[in-house]
């Protein structure tokens, strides 16, 4: 390749110039689309939020209902993400380190929440735990409220986020195989030591990436949570639901203020994701050098 470039520099330059214009056009198009569909809406959100000044902005997000929505969102994230980590690591471990019947079925089932519409996921919980649901009478007898209460919201969030960590870890762990674990056992490590000192450090960045994706989804989930929530202000409202209520009440400034709070959280998560992704790529690159 180098030799042809040297042999016929002008032809190469012409070809390259053609390339340059094509490339510039594509890049410009990409930026245009990005600006129109992503940056502009973001700008609008923030702009609307600050329309009546910072004072109104802060009143809107510090108002009790907004704070309670924030709290509920954080509770849903705080419960679903750790559970997800445990489930994801356990599932990925089973799938990548053992051979058993029904393995491919398990892998398919892990993906189910990706293919089922979140609204249907919410409805499943209503059908199961609602007053008219399968377990409804039993739950009522024992005075347990799941649907239209915090447990329902947490359950719905768990359902929609189940695949994130497992999906991230399964290919990673399959690629790494079991030899390092075997070596650890041969050197006298027990199961816990093996996991802590060998497996976990090897999957660390993939795990963080999975957690970040899972957190982002848990915070932003609307459909499934909307069905099971009942929209009781100050009680069963998460941030996305609260934004919707405010918006439907034509309280635009407040809606956009809360929305930009959600946005700030999302951007923070995005930065975390970027950082962990670059770590993973660096690890992969160094592994590929081997």
């Amino acid at each position: 390749m180098t030799s042809t470039t040297l042999a016929n520099p002008s032809a190469a330059r012409v070809a390259q110039r053609g390339n340059v214009w094509g490339r510039r056009f594509l890049i410009a198009a990409a930026w245009l689309i990005f600006t129109l569909f992503l940056l502009l809406p973001l700008y609008v959100v923030v702009n609307e939020a600050l329309k009546q000044g910072l004072g109104t902005f802060f009143t809107s997000i510090l108002e009790p209902d907004a704070l309670s929505a924030l709290k509920l969102t954080l509770i849903a994230v705080g419960i679903s993400v750790p559970l997800n980590v445990v489930f994801g690591v356990a599932a990925a471990w089973c799938v990548s380190k053992y051979d058993f019947k029904g393995k491919s079925l398990l892998v398919t089932l892990i993906d189910l929440p990706f293919s089922v519409s979140p609204v249907i996921a919410g409805l499943i919980y209503v059908l199961m735990f609602g007053a008219q649901g399968w377990f409804g009478p039993w739950l009522q007898d024992h005075d347990i409220q799941i649907v239209f209460a915090v447990p329902g919201i947490v359950l719905a969030t768990i359902f929609v986020t189940v695949p994130f960590v497992a999906r991230e870890l399964i290919p990673l762990m399959q690629e790494q195989g079991t030899q390092e674990e075997e070596a650890a056992r041969l050197l006298g490590a027990n199961g816990w030591q093996m996991f802590w000192h060998v497996t976990l450090p090897n999957i660390k960045w993939g795990l963080i990436y999975g957690v970040v994706l899972c957190t982002a989804r848990a915070m932003g989930e609307f459909g499934a949570v909307s069905v099971v929530s009942g929209h009781i202000r100050g009680m069963t409202n998460t941030l996305p639901l609260h934004v919707e209520i405010l918006y439907n009440e034509y309280n635009h400034v407040a809606a956009f203020s809360v929305a930009s709070l959600l946005l700030a959280l999302a951007i923070f998560i995005l930065l975390l994701k970027q950082w962990s992704e670059s770590r993973i790529n660096r690890l992969k690159a160094s592994a590929a050098e081997e």
């Binding site: 030899q179 390092e180 075997e182 070596a183 650890a184 056992r185 041969l186 027990n190 090897n202």
Partner: peptide, 29 residues
């Protein structure tokens, strides 16, 4: 169990712990 057999094993592809230094690899056991 494997860990109680007190067997030294060298794998064909070495299976060194990739995230540990040489020192920590040898010290692991």
């Amino acid at each position: 169990e494997v860990r109680e057999r007190n067997v030294g094993f060298v794998f064909q592809h070495y299976a060194l712990f990739r995230h540990m230094t040489v020192f920590n690899n040898v010290a692991f056991g």
